[in-house]
Design a protein around this nucleic acid. Sequence first.
DNA 1: AGCCTTTTGAG
DNA 2: TCAAAAGGC
Length: 486
Amino acid sequence: MQPVLLWLRRDLRLADNPALTRALDTGQPVIPVYLHAPEEEAPWFPGAASRWWLHHSLNALSCALTAAGSRLILRQGGSLECLLQLLDETGAGQVIWNRTYEPALIQRDRRIKAALKDRGVRVESCNSALLFEPWTVSNKSGEPYRVFTPFWKACCAKGLPDDVATLPESITAPAHWPVSDDLKQWALLPRISWDQGLAQRWQPGEAGAHHALERFLAHGVLTYKTGRDLPGQPGTSRLSPHLHFGEIGPRQLIRACQRLQQQGIGTEGSTSVAAFIREIGWREFAFHLLFHFPQTPEHPLDQRFEHFPWRKPEDYADDLAAWQHGLTGIPLVDAGMRELWHTGWMHNRVRMITASLLVKNLGIPWQEGARWFWDTLVDADLASNTLGWQWTAGCGADAAPYFRVFNPVLQGERFDGQGAYIRHWVPELEHLPDRYLHAPWTAPASLIPPAYPRPRVDLGASRKTALAAWEQLKEHSRLSPGGSVP
DNA sequence: AGCCTTTTGAG
DNA sequence: TCAAAAGGC
C-alpha cells in the first residue's frame, strides 16, 4: 500500500501529535522522517546548545518509534529535495507535518507546499505547537494584539483547548524502509566536550519531558506563584526546552493543570496553577508577536529605539565578554551567566536581571544578549527569546518600561537571601557572609575573595546614565517623530 | 515583572 | 523618627 511521509520538525513526540494522528487515520503505512537543513533557518541557525539537545531528542524519538514498530528516517540536505527524493524512493503520495512559525520557516514551508502540490503530491499541515495559531486571534479592529492581558483574555474567552490525541500503540510500517543517515554523522554534538553539565541536568526527549512535568506537578506547581521567583529552588517547570522541540505540547499542559484544578488544591495551589497557565499564555503571545511582526528578532518594535545611543562594539567588547563568561563582579549576574554556560538554561528571574544589566547598566544593544542566549540556551526559541529581550530593553510590545531598571543587589537580597544560588554558581564567594554576598565590594578588604573580580559597573551611576539617555531619546522622538536623531 | 526620592501621617 | 504611600523616571 502507498505510504505517507510524516515530516517531523518541532514536534518530536508521539502523544498529542496531530500530524501523526492524521497520518495514522489515512490507514496507510507511515514513514516518519526528520530532515537536517539548518541553513534554511538562516539567519537564526540553531546554536550549539540547541544542536546538543536536538541530537539527544532525535535519538529518543528514534527509540520510541522503533518501540512502536516504526523507525525514524534521517536525511540531510535541502528539505524539498529530500522530500522529493523520499517520495520517489518510497512511492508515497502524501506528506503531513505540523506547522512552524518562525519567519524563515514559514517561507520555506510555503514554498515546499506549493512545489509538492505542483507535482500532484497531497500535502497537509496541522497545529501541534500552539493553543491558538497567530492568525486566529485579533482585536475588534482585526489587528494583532500588542498588549498581553487583552490578548490572553481573548484567548481564554475562546476556551483553552485541552483535547489530546491518545498515544498510538503501533505505527504501521511500510513494506520497505528507505535508508537513513547515521545521526552521529550530522555532528550535532560539540567537538570538544563541554556538555557534561547539560547531560547531567537534562533528559531530552518525550519521556524526559513527561518526567519533568510529573516532577513539577508533584513538587512545584502548587507553590509556583512565589516559588518561581527563587532561583535557588527548583520552583519552575523547566519545561521550556521540551516545549521548544515539541516533546510536549501546550494542550497537554493545560489538560494536566485542569486535572489538578479539579482536585481540592486550596487557594495558593489554585492561584499558582493559574499563574503557570498564564506563563503558557506568554509563550502563545510570543508566537503571536513574531508572526505579526517578523522583523522583531533584529529590530525593536518601538522604532524610537532604532536611534538609542547604545555603546559601540569596539567600546563594549570587553564588558560583553565579561558578561558572557560570568565575570562582571556582580554576584547574581555572574551566577546566572555561569548557570547558563554550564546547564544551557537560566532561571527566568535571573534572565531578567542579567538582561537588564547588559542593556541598561552596560549600555550594550539587546541584540547582543539575544545572540548569546540563542547560542547557549537549550530552550533557545526565536519567539520567546525575542519577546524576552525586547521586554527587558523596553522596546517591545507590552514591554517593561525602559525606566524599570533591576538592581541585582536588591534582587539578590530579595530572592536569594540565603545565597544558595550565588554560592552554588560562584564558589569564590562561598565563605563571604550573607550581608556582603550580594555586593562583595562593600565588604571589609580582608573578607573580599581575591579571585573574584571587582564590579565592572557602578550600578547607581550607570542607572542614571541610562535614564538620561532615555529621556533624551524621548525628547528627540517628540521633536522629529520617525525621523533620525542628530 | 523596579528603583529612588519625596511626602505623609501615626506615635 | 520611621514606615508606608505616592510620584517620577
